[in-house]
Structures are given as C-alpha cells and as structure tokens.
C-alpha cells in the first residue's frame, strides 16, 4: 500500500507535463484555428449572401424554443440580409445548412455546410456538380412557403433522394420564417 502515493505522484507528474506541452501548442495554434473557422464561415455564408463579414445576433428564448433546429443567425455586415444556420436530420445523418435571406424575406441561396448523405444521390444536394448547382438554384427567390412539387410547391426533388430534398426544403422554409419573425 506504501506504493500508492508514489504511483499517484508519477502519474500526476506525467499528466501535468503532457497538459503543459498541450497548453503551449494550443497557445501557438489558437489564433490560427479561430481564423480558419471564421474564414470557413465567411466562405460558406458568402456563397448564399455576399458580404465581407457577418455578425452573429442573439436569439430570444421564445425564438430558440420555436426553432430548435436553428444553430445561429448572423446579419451581413453590409445590411443586405441574414444568414440562418440550422442542423437537422437528413436521410443518413445530420445536415447543417446555411440559408441566405434578404430584407424582403426571399431566399438568396442555400449551401450545405456538412452532411453525410448517400454519395451520388442525396449528396448531390451539397455537391459542386452541375446537378447540385442547378438543384440549389431552384431556391433563389423562394419565400417562406417553399415546398417540393409533391407537396404542391415548385421545387423538383433530387432523383433518388426524396428525403434529403424534403428536409432541406423544409429547413429553408423554416429559416425564412424565422427571419421574417425577427422583423
């Protein structure tokens, strides 16, 4: 039993050294990581609503409760509108989507930030291929009642990916509705 304090001490020492080294590395990379994340956001957002910078605006608790899938809402620095980022369940996993909304509550573009949909089918919603670009272009100018053709709307579903198409369309409608409630 005498050994336990010694063992604990050695283990503690090794943990402390490791944590110290990690702290150093973190200090060195911290700013760069923050900058990379900001660039990533700006890049994804500028695809749906062009601006140089975006400022996150806080949501009221009531709005948070009414729109649980919405992660954050940012206002474009040039005042042209808002970008809503939401995460929801697609066909295979969670999809994170950015939706640009202008001041007259029309969609200025959508962009899938992350997803794990079926390659070649649902993944077309995010791809930079012609199919993907044309599909997303359908959302330009859409209002909060945007829906798939099957549901009486105007959006063509992606071939073989009805679920992905439906969830993305619903999330777009939701995002526009949220911005219209922001006023």
């Amino acid at each position: 039993m005498k050994k336990i304090p010694k063992l604990t001490f050695i283990l503690f020492l090794i943990c402390a050294i490791t944590a110290g080294i990690l702290g150093g590395i973190n200090e060195l990379t911290k700013d760069r990581i923050a900058e990379q994340n900001r660039l990533k956001t700006v890049k994804a957002y500028s695809a749906v609503l062009p601006a140089d910078d975006y400022e996150e605006i806080p949501l009221t608790d009531a709005l948070k409760a009414a729109y649980p899938s919405v992660d954050k809402v940012s206002r474009a620095a040039n005042g042209s509108g808002y970008v809503v980022e939401s995460t929801f369940s697609g066909a295979q996993g969670m999809i994170t989507l950015a939706v640009g909304v202008n001041n007259s509550f029309k969609c200025t573009g959508i962009s899938v930030i992350s997803h794990s949909e079926t390659s070649g089918l649902g993944a077309n919603a995010a791809s930079s291929s012609e199919t993907g670009v044309n599909w997303r272009a359908q959302f330009l100018g859409a209002d909060q009642n945007v829906a798939l053709k099957k549901a009486g709307g105007t959006i063509d579903a992606l071939a073989g990916a009805t679920i992905t198409s439906r969830t993305v369309t619903e999330a777009t409608a939701l995002s526009i509705r949220l911005v219209s409630e922001l006023g």
């Binding site: 283990l11 943990c15 490791t18 990690l22 990379t29 760069r32 990533k40």
Partner: peptide
C-alpha cells in the same frame, strides 16, 4: 496519457493548418 497528448497535438495542428 502519452498517446492522448500526441493525438491532441496532431488534432490541433490539423485544425490550424489543414482544416
């Protein structure tokens, strides 16, 4: 502990340089 240390270092470096 040693492994977790190195993994975190690589993780941080990747986040910073190859996001």
């Amino acid at each position: 502990v040693v492994i977790a240390g190195f993994v975190t270092i690589v993780d941080l470096l990747l986040q910073a340089f190859i996001p």
